[in-house]
Amino acid sequence: MIGLGLSRGFAVTLKNFLRPAVTEQYPDRHVGLIGAAKAAGMNPFQFLVKKPTDSLKAIAGLATVPVAVKQSPRFRGNEFTFFEDRCTACASCAKYCPLGIIEIVSVPGKIDAQEGESYKLEVFDIDIGRCMFCGLCVEACPYDALHMGTGFERSKYVRDELIITKEELFDAPKRPSSFYRPQFEENGFDPFKETIDDHHDAGRHERPSDEDLKRKWVDER
């Protein structure tokens, strides 16, 4: 019968019209008075008394609260996390990069009785303006020094500012993604809530105890 298929189609669209929206608001979400009060951490009456202008805004529908985008812990973000104490300047990441955008300059550093000769990192630049975030550099790192980051809000007006330098990597909060780092998943590390402050926690092996270190480096020699 002509028209039956069409009416069935309209039934489907009506059903979809009534289901909750899947649109995710980003970066801000409009909230009413109750939502704004909740975001400020007080109940609506307190909020009305203490912040009258903000409450008026909220009642008028102008108040917004920032929204965190739902991300997977393995998300390959727009930045990198780098633990300088773990890096030996072996340049595996630079060799493994398909685009050759990691620049490493290292000079021979101190000679340590325990660890032998070490290299000091002079330059460690990642040009993320050309990076495609494939993660091969992270996969190549034998010492778990370089990790993918989880953030993605790193847009800039000038192309040169897209180069991540050594200093920026040192100072950035350490929120590594668990991409190619199964130890983070085993430890239940959540990059969106916590940071890694001790570089020993970033490795794929357990941190050796002081006795182990003494046995290895003092007693056995």
């Binding site: 997977s72 998300f75 975030f133 091969l136 190619y180 998943e185």
Partner: peptide, 28 residues
């Protein structure tokens, strides 16, 4: 695409496969 993000961290440009398998097991 959300499932892909869980698997390999990217949605479109996955690069999930490697010679001999995949680079990482699926998360729990």
């Amino acid at each position: 695409l959300d499932l892909f993000e869980m698997l390999c961290g990217a949605r479109i440009t996955n690069s999930y496969l490697r010679p001999g398998g995949v680079f990482m097991d699926a998360p729990a």
